[in-house]
Amino acid sequence: MGLVACRRCARVWPGSARRCGRCGHGLRSRDVMALQKVWALWVVGLICYIPANIYTMLETRTLVSSQTNTVIGGALELGHHGDWGVAMVILVASVGIPISKFIVIAMLAYGIRNRSFLSPERRQLMHELVEYIGRWSMIDVFVVAILSALVHLGALVSIQPGIAALFFAMSVIFTMLSAMCFDSRLIWDSMVDDLPPEIRPKSAHPQADRANKPEEGATA
């Protein structure tokens, strides 16, 4: 319909507008690079998540011993001490949430180009959930920060942060960015029959696609 909407303030402008006259946000009907950005940030996040789990998150030095803990190791140790509740909070925040986030973002991004078996409403909900919950993974980094600032009792006991904290924070930040880059309007574009050519993805040639898709759908 030859219009473009501002995603920041919801104002509608003629399609030729490049910048929102109300809030100054850049206008773009659909970012053709959006999916690539999502995938790029997703991969970086995933790469950071590996060292975050391999290296030490916390180093506890006491008079007699020095002990290093990874993310999962620390949570399990808490559990062995009997604090299963807190151990679960940490496990959910630092293992469950990040991994399900990786899976959900990948599903959403994959579902744009390919036939998705979930309804747009469901996928919209998943995207909102990922955007909301993703931040909570930072809790583990905060715990490390608090512990290492607080527990400095001379030679008796002290807690040092490990390099995994940095990787973990970076992983959370990159997946947050990845989820933000995902344009949820792409989910709904599939419901509109007559997309204007300027927002149709470059690769999509209606004729060719229409001819190809049924077979792909049949195999899948």
Partner: peptide, 26 residues
């Protein structure tokens, strides 16, 4: 609403429209 609108109209008729930021329905 789409049917009522013509591309290139003056800005005023657009001022009372609101586009959903998450699905782009107007």
């Amino acid at each position: 609403r789409r049917a009522h609108m013509h591309p290139g109209t003056a800005e005023d008729p657009l001022a009372d429209l609101v586009a959903c930021p998450s699905c782009d329905a107007v």
